[in-house]
Design a protein around this nucleic acid. Sequence first.
DNA 1: TCCCCTTTTAACCTTACATTAACAAAAATG
DNA 2: CATTTTTGTTAATGTAAGGTTAAAAGGGGA
Lengths: 234, 234
Amino acid sequence: MEEQKKRILLVEDDPNFGTVLKDYLMMNDYEVTHAKNGMEGFEKFKKDDFDLCILDVMMPYKDGFTLAKEIREKNTDVPIIFLTAKTMKEDVLKGYKVGADDYLNKPFDSEVLLMKIKAIIQRKATETISDSKQFEFKIGSFDLNSKLRFLRFKGGEPVKLSPKENELLRLLALHENDLMPRELALTKIWRDDNYFTSRSMDVYIAKLRKYLKLDEKVEILNIHGEGFRLVINN
Amino acid sequence: MEEQKKRILLVEDDPNFGTVLKDYLMMNDYEVTHAKNGMEGFEKFKKDDFDLCILDVMMPYKDGFTLAKEIREKNTDVPIIFLTAKTMKEDVLKGYKVGADDYLNKPFDSEVLLMKIKAIIQRKATETISDSKQFEFKIGSFDLNSKLRFLRFKGGEPVKLSPKENELLRLLALHENDLMPRELALTKIWRDDNYFTSRSMDVYIAKLRKYLKLDEKVEILNIHGEGFRLVINN
DNA sequence: TCCCCTTTTAACCTTACATTAACAAAAATG
DNA sequence: CATTTTTGTTAATGTAAGGTTAAAAGGGGA
């Protein structure tokens, strides 16, 4: 059985270290694309599909965090590992905020890196089975295209959705008729969970409800203290 | 409202460090059970449901790995974080083998630990989302969906249940036709057992009876001084 | 720079929930 | 049978969560 090699985007400005790491990963059966800085990293990211990104934090022109943010705008799912200078606590916290999956302090042990890579790719694989790759939804009489970010009612004129509107409606649609926990949306979309992000989410729920009013069979119900539920009656 | 606190089992033999860590976690809104060694840790694990285990690796009598293995035999899902001595690489690798979700080198930064805890619990939550079925009960002519918190009579309009109503009815349903001890509900749902919580529970029993009146075959009987019994006659 | 689009923050209001109180009824106790 | 405990039920209260709208704050082009 031909296992497809996993593809890693490695963004690391130190040429020596970068090359060594790349070779090491390739020896361990990963397909590695090595970019020398943030710009290049983003270009390569856009061109290809990767299973994992390993980003150095300290880089000229465009640091790892900025790059990660750009990557996240394009793709909310791809796992990201940061390579941070030793015990830069702020870096670690900032990393998690941007949506990192893990971090590694330099200098690090290569075997540990391998373990992490395996664990993370594995984790994403099971997590992603259901919810990735799905960009088109039927919601009552609506069609949602979450890749192009529009919502269309009965084949009429599509209305454009903002990124957050879109992500939120997509999450709801993924859980159609089922509970979509508040926390899930907050951590997946807002990447933070506090009073204000929570209120912000409520505002977006209101916006979505306004859009969805056109079809009285479709509604977003609240489950007090838990989250929301997109139901389609018939 | 009533956001249920996440429960952490902390197994750490150093009394000073353990206590400090416990307090710190509690300050951050976790419910923490602290065990002083592997044995005690396992006992406590068996007695309760936890959302996360934090295990020190170096402990007398029973080290963290052995404990983790035992825990894994009982429960394949609960996330485990190891606290390892600084850069003991073997420990890290061994930890992953045993099925750890993450590890932290001592000394570690407490904020980083918090981030990890949040990330890990969140991750598990999304993974575990789909194993419903254990949330659906048939009670006479009623359907109880305790995940979506509604009760439906003969396929009619579902009526929403409050968290406490829901939990209580679920507990009763789990013990259908059998005694559901007062104390059980109080410790599991109210997590406290005193005069007032007990009265509060009685209030909820009254509410449930009102809902269930629609089906005269279903009733909640009191067993004086013992608890309640959900019976379905036919 | 200004403008437009998006997102957050704020304010105010409504609803949902849990607890407590108060009083009635049943059951146990002796 | 009188008294104490336990349970049944309804209503009042306080607080937290959610609904809604508008204004402020960012942020990326033209």
